[in-house]
Every structure is written in C-alpha cells, then in structure tokens.
C-alpha cells in the first residue's frame, strides 16, 4: 500500500514537471520558433514611449537573452528553492514556492494566487455540497420511482442541465434574480467567509446554484443508472429476502454500492473546479483563480500564467491521486500496481 502511494506520488510530481515544461514551451518556445526575438517579447513589458535601449534593458532584466533551458531552469528552481528579485534599490528574496514576479506589476505571483484561492475554494465548496446532495437525492428517487412523472421530469431537467452552457445560465440567472427581482447579489459580489458568513453565502448563492444545476444534472443521471444497476444485483435480492425493510435495502446496500463511482467523479470535479472555474468566474466577475488566469493571458503576463497553470494542474493531479488511493482502499478488487 505504501509502495503504491509512493509510486503514485512520484508519478504525480513527474506529471506536474511535464505540465510545467509544456506550459513553459508554449509561452517561451513557440513565439521564438515563430520568429520573435528577445526584444520583441520584452517590448510588451516596457512603457509606451520606450526606446530601443529601454527594450533591450527590459529583455536583459527579464532574462530573455538567456538560453531557454536556463530560463526554464530558473523558473523550476524558483518553485523548489525560491529566488531573488531585483527591485531597484535592493533585491528581495522570494521564498519557495516562488512562481516568479509579474512581468507587468512586478508583484510576486504566489501571494496573488493564495489571495485568489479562497474565492475559488468558496465557489467550489458551496456548489459541490449543493450538487452532491441534490444530484444524488434526485437520482435515488428517480431510480426508485422509475417511470413516474418525477423520474421523467427529473431526468428531463438533468439532460437540460448538462446541455446548458454556464455562461448562458449564469447571465440568465443574474438577469432574472439579481437585476429584475433583486433577490440575489449582483455580479462581482464576494465577501470573505471570515468577515461575514451570512453575507458570504448571500453573495455566492447564485453562482453556487448555477454551477450546481449543471453538475447535479450529471450526478442525478449517474446515480439513477447506478442505482438501477445495483438494485438488480443478487446481493440486493438477498437483502430483500432476509426481510430487511426496503428503506434499509435502498439506503444501506443499494446507495452505498452506487456511491463509490460517484465519489470518484466528485473528487475529480472538485479538483478541476479548484483549478479555476474560468467560465463561472468570468460570468459572475468573481476574482478567483480562473478570472486571474484569463486576465493574465490577456495581458501576456507569463509568470502569472505559468503560476496559475501549475496550480490548476496541481489540483487536478491531487484529486486524481486522492481518488485513486481512496479507490484502492475502498474497493479491494483494485490491484495496487
């Protein structure tokens, strides 16, 4: 078991390493291959009236004249060992994990990311709680009342749910609930949980429900089909034959067996969301990881883009890892290879 975990851990770290190398290549190698010089790249980060000399100095300062391997090495070393950054009058040490400094604002990237994370985490936490409860409950009831009006309606809504782009439902929800009825917070609303829990929930309830609507739909469908499959298995028949009350059969035996794959997917979904709900954050103008990424890409602020990609990949890899390990623990049939 421990060997398994260690192997997966090493694999995960390797994966992150490859992700970082590929990301770096896209931003630093591809433009160079397309013929851009170090000065071309640097000219994005100088002021409006900069002359050639200033561009060259900026290219020097940002290290664009160094070989790409050296540039990548500097980035990777910063994450592991920290880095020093020249602020003008003095250098400042940026402790590991140092994702470097913004090319534009010269602010260190890592604190920025930590600053944005609570917004994304709040979004993911609330939404995932809602969609898990709503999705699984709907799925179970649908499965038990197969063919009923509830089942048809629920599955219809579920199908609609997975077919709607969130930037459409989000705008629709904002238009109706915030701007017409005025019952929910308008876009760009966020209050820290520690500051005012009630306000936090009020501000986020609309994005939560919007995300949850889409996710719950899929969960309901999965739960329902899983339950149907499970309920036709032998051990359920055995349980029923033992005279257990239907309630116990359903909840204790049926649902439990169905939940394993649901939990897997849940873990992966939450991991993905933590890496930045780009569309949701854009639609509701929430300053989380996703919107940070979009702004960074728009401004060509490469250290920020690298940082945010790494964080997003980290959450995805972490979620995969946790799920795999949990799976191995829960399900004895999984071979630990």
């Amino acid at each position: 078991m421990i060997v398994f975990i260690i192997r997966r851990l090493v694999g995960a770290v390797l994966l992150l390493f490859v992700v970082s190398a590929v990301t770096f290549s896209i931003f630093f190698v591809v433009p160079r291959l397309a013929g851009a010089t170090a000065e071309d790249l640097a000219s994005r980060y100088v002021g409006k009236t900069a002359d050639e000399q200033q561009v060259r100095q900026m290219a020097d300062k940002l290290g664009f004249h160094d070989p790409l391997v050296v540039q990548y090495g500097r980035f990777a070393k910063g994450i592991v060992a920290g880095a020093d950054y020249d602020y003008g009058p003095a250098a400042e040490h940026c402790p590991a994990p140092c994702f470097g400094y913004s090319f534009l604002t010269q602010a260190p990237v890592w604190p920025d990311l930590l600053d944005r994370l609570p917004v994304t985490a709040s979004l993911a936490a609330g939404a995932s709680a809602i969609w898990l409860l709503a999705g699984v409950a709907t799925g179970v009831i649908s499965a038990l009342r197969r063919g009923s009006i509830f089942d048809r309606a629920a599955m219809g809504v579920a199908l609609a749910g997975v077919s709607l782009p969130i930037f459409f439902t989000g705008l629709l929800a904002l238009g109706i609930f915030s701007y017409t009825l005025g019952v929910t917070a308008p876009g760009s609303s966020y209050t820290a949980l520690a500051e005012d829990p009630a306000q936090w929930a009020y501000d986020l309830i609309l994005p939560w429900i919007t995300i949850a609507f889409l996710y719950a739909a899929g969960y309901a469908r999965l739960t329902s089909s899983g339950m149907l499959e499970t309920m036709s298995e032998d051990f359920i028949r055995t349980a029923r034959a033992k005279g257990l009350p239907e309630r116990t059969v359903v909840l204790k035996h049926g649902l439990r067996a169905t939940l394993t794959p649901i939990v897997t997917i849940f873990g992966l979904d939450v991991g993905l969301l933590l890496g930045g709900a780009i569309l949701t954050e854009s639609t509701f103008s929430l300053n989380g990881i996703g919107r940070y990424a979009i702004l960074a890409i728009g401004a060509n602020d490469l250290p920020k883009v690298m940082g945010v990609t790494m964080v997003a990949a980290f959450f995805i890899v972490l979620a995969n890892l946790v799920v795999d390990i949990l799976y191995a623990v829960v399900d004895p049939r999984v071979r630990l290879t």
């Binding site: 002021g47 409006k48 900069a50 200033q54 100095q57 300062k61 602020y87 003008g88």
Partner: peptide, 13 residues
C-alpha cells in the same frame, strides 16, 4: 528615480 524605466516602465518619459 522616475528616469529608471527598467524599474518604472509605465510613466511618461
């Protein structure tokens, strides 16, 4: 200090 455009790239020149 405003003359140093590597540290303060954005200001007028």
């Amino acid at each position: 200090r405003s003359l140093d455009k590597t540290v303060f790239p954005d200001g007028p020149t």
